[in-house]
């Protein structure tokens, strides 16, 4: 230990030499294990997908202000009431995305207290059903973000988050960014493209970009979903075509609107309603022709 400075310099030389040797290997390892992966993805690997549903449900529980069924509750929130057909969702109101609206369906998930402890304990937790509103829906977003980190292939997470971001929270830019993140993980997924088109049309009023995105969504549906035959998600195509048709009609592109309305007529469970749109659009085309 006569010259500690020399030892220090020696150690620095060794450290520098090691860095030059290890660094290329570390880079190669990072590329192999997936560059750009988040910390969660690196630590949890495949197991993270198991937690994604749980976290997504947590977001839903926030939406219902903490009033949410556990695995021990036999009744589910918004399940059909007794006597109401399980598949008959037309029996109550829905928002534009087909979600059940407040107050409809089964909301009493607890039922009557089974004993005095049950009755007493209900004064200490949430027993009334209410929904987040007036922008408070933002509170569920961290859970959706985390769920997307856990399982980036779950398309619903991106569309639900984007819906609330562009509507109640008023952040279309963030909705667009999140959908694009979803598209990076699920390239050209028609449902994500459908939601992205809504951002362009309803938030940015950008008809051209909305049209391009929805046309791509339609094309992708035929490529991805159509080969599934009976299992194909026709409701998704119905939504894409309906959006396109309405947008083209409002933009005055009646010929394009007519093509889409005619396609929608084949898909819709209520073609008579669509017939009226076809008729109205045809009249507009005729009127244009006369001019």
């Amino acid at each position: 230990m006569k010259n500690p400075g020399l030892i220090l310099v020696g150690l620095m030389v060794i450290a520098f030499s090691l860095i030059t040797a290890i660094s290329p290997q570390q880079q190669a390892w990072a590329e192999q294990s997936g560059r750009g992966q988040t910390l969660i993805a690196r630590f949890m690997g495949g197991s993270r997908e198991m937690f994604a549903n749980q976290i997504f449900s947590k977001g839903d529980a926030y939406m219902h202000s903490g009033y949410y069924p556990t695995i021990f509750d036999s009744k589910k929130l918004h399940a059909p009431k007794e006597g109401e057909s399980g598949g008959d969702h037309s029996a109550h109101k829905h928002d534009e995305n087909g979600r059940c609206l407040t107050g409809e369906g089964e909301t009493d998930i607890l039922g009557k207290p089974l004993d005095w402890i049950d009755s007493f304990s209900r004064h200490f937790y949430i027993t009334k059903h209410s929904h987040l509103e007036k922008g408070q829906e933002r509170e569920m977003l961290p859970w959706l973000k985390l769920a997307a980190e856990m399982d980036p292939t779950q398309v619903d997470i991106y569309t639900v988050a984007a819906f609330w971001l562009r509507t109640s929270v008023g952040k279309p830019k963030e909705a667009e960014d999140f959908l694009r993140e979803g598209l990076r993980h699920n390239p050209n997924h028609p449902e994500l493209l459908l939601e992205l088109g809504k951002v362009y049309l309803e938030s940015y009023k950008d008809v051209d970009r909305a049209r391009n995105v929805w046309e791509l969504a339609k094309m992708r549906w035929y490529k991805v979903e159509a080969p599934k035959n009976e299992n194909a998600d026709t409701l998704m195509l119905e939504q894409i075509v309906a959006r396109l048709a309405d947008m083209e009609y409002k933009a005055g592109n009646y010929t394009n609107a007519l093509v889409n309305y005619q396609l929608l007529r084949q898909l819709s469970p209520v073609p008579k309603v669509i017939d009226e749109h076809v008729k109205k659009t045809q009249e507009m085309i005729d009127a244009q022709g006369k001019k």
């Binding site: 926030y62 922008g135 509170e139 977003l141 859970w143 973000k145 929270v169 952040k171 963030e174 999140f178």
Partner: peptide, 13 residues
């Protein structure tokens, strides 16, 4: 300090 969708009003989590 985590940023969720550039919204600093998120607090319940």
């Amino acid at each position: 300090a985590v940023n969720f969708f550039n919204d600093d009003k998120i607090v319940r989590y």
